[in-house]
């Protein structure tokens, strides 16, 4: 039965998706992996059982893909980040993240996919000074309260949750809300920030962060196929660290700066189009820590291999 298993990874050009593909390939060389992305796929590492396809994310293209391959598992790792060039265009992000996700989920149902695994983010909870520690999966998603530009992130998560419970008897679905994923293969904002010599080190706030190594995250994604039942799971290690200490571990001590002034500077930068999304500043002020008990219940206490200090030290190289 396993011989015929077909896996779809949406967003294969991403570093995390490639680690995942490699992990699946190593453990199940008999499975067939189809990776799609709207970005270039020529840099995707070649694997015997992986076909990387570049395609425009459109309803027609996805429908043709689902019709051609009877996928057993679909990984949706293609959330358009609010940090990318699109971040200012909320309408475009809503179209891709919310409407696009909705279409993919419907196709999964129509073509009898057995399991859907969606990568969301801990950002959905929002960074607030009154955040309780270790937010559980049922905590309110407050990210878009202060910053409407985060609407797509929250709505994508919510649309998946609603869909998941509605169709729980027909299809297994897992939504993962990981903490900051860092590693040398993924080029997300947090990794770039930690590797930057000019990273802002807040002197007026001391936020606490959780970091998971990209390999551990890929392993959670991989194990989700068989070991996580339908549900929403926060993904974070037990350990946490202050941002100041994290910067010290990566070898770049950071540039001490009052984050309170950052908003002001950002307004000036707006004129040169170099500004960063305002809500990111809040993540440098306030902690948003997530609870991992539900995930550990299924994957065990030692689901992650890298300790937080190892994860950060590895960014040095």
């Amino acid at each position: 039965m396993d011989n015929t298993k077909k896996i779809l990874i949406i967003g294969i050009s991403g570093g995390l998706a490639q680690i995942l593909a490699k992990l699946i390939s190593q453990n199940h060389p008999e499975w067939k992996i189809i990776g799609v992305d709207s970005r270039r796929v020529n840099k995707v590492e070649a694997l015997d059982n992986l076909s990387a396809i570049r395609m425009r994310y459109s309803r027609g293209n996805f429908e043709a893909l689902f019709r051609e391959h009877q996928f057993d598992t679909v990984y949706h790792l293609a959330r358009v980040s609010h940090i990318t060039q699109f971040y200012k265009d909320l309408t475009k992000r809503l179209e891709l993240n919310v409407m696009g996700t909705n279409r993919i989920l419907d196709l999964c149902l129509r073509f009898n996919v057995k399991k859907v695994i969606v990568l969301s983010t801990f950002h959905v909870y929002g960074a607030y000074s009154d955040n309780s520690i270790f937010l559980t999966e049922d905590a309110p998603l407050r990210a878009s309260l202060n910053y409407p530009e985060l609407r797509d992130v929250v709505e994508m998560d919510q649309i998946c949750s609603t869909w998941m419970w509605k169709h729980q008897n027909s299809i297994n679905s897992v939504i993962l809300r990981p903490c900051n994923i860092v590693g040398t293969q993924i080029s997300n904002t947090m990794t770039q920030y930690l590797q930057s010599r000019f990273a802002i080190k807040p002197i007026d706030f001391n936020p606490i962060f959780q970091f998971i190594h990209e390999f551990d995250m890929a392993k959670v994604l991989y194990r989700s196929i068989d070991e996580l039942p339908t549900g929403i799971y926060n993904v974070a290690p037990d350990d946490f660290i202050s941002l100041g200490e994290a910067l010290n571990l990566t070898g770049h001590k950071g540039v001490p700066f009052p984050v309170t002034m950052a908003s002001l500077f950002n307004k000036v930068l707006k004129f040169s189009n170099l500004d960063i999304p305002e809500y990111l500043i809040d993540y440098l002020k306030f902690s948003c820590l997530i609870d991992n008990r539900l995930l550990k219940k299924h994957l065990g206490d030692d689901f992650n291999r890298f300790k937080i200090d190892e994860t950060l030290k590895l960014l040095k190289y």
């Binding site: 002197i203 007026d204 706030f205 002020k285």
Partner: peptide
């Protein structure tokens, strides 16, 4: 106070 610069931290 928790959200106040310096003092909260």
């Amino acid at each position: 106070l928790a959200g106040f610069p310096f003092l909260g931290s």
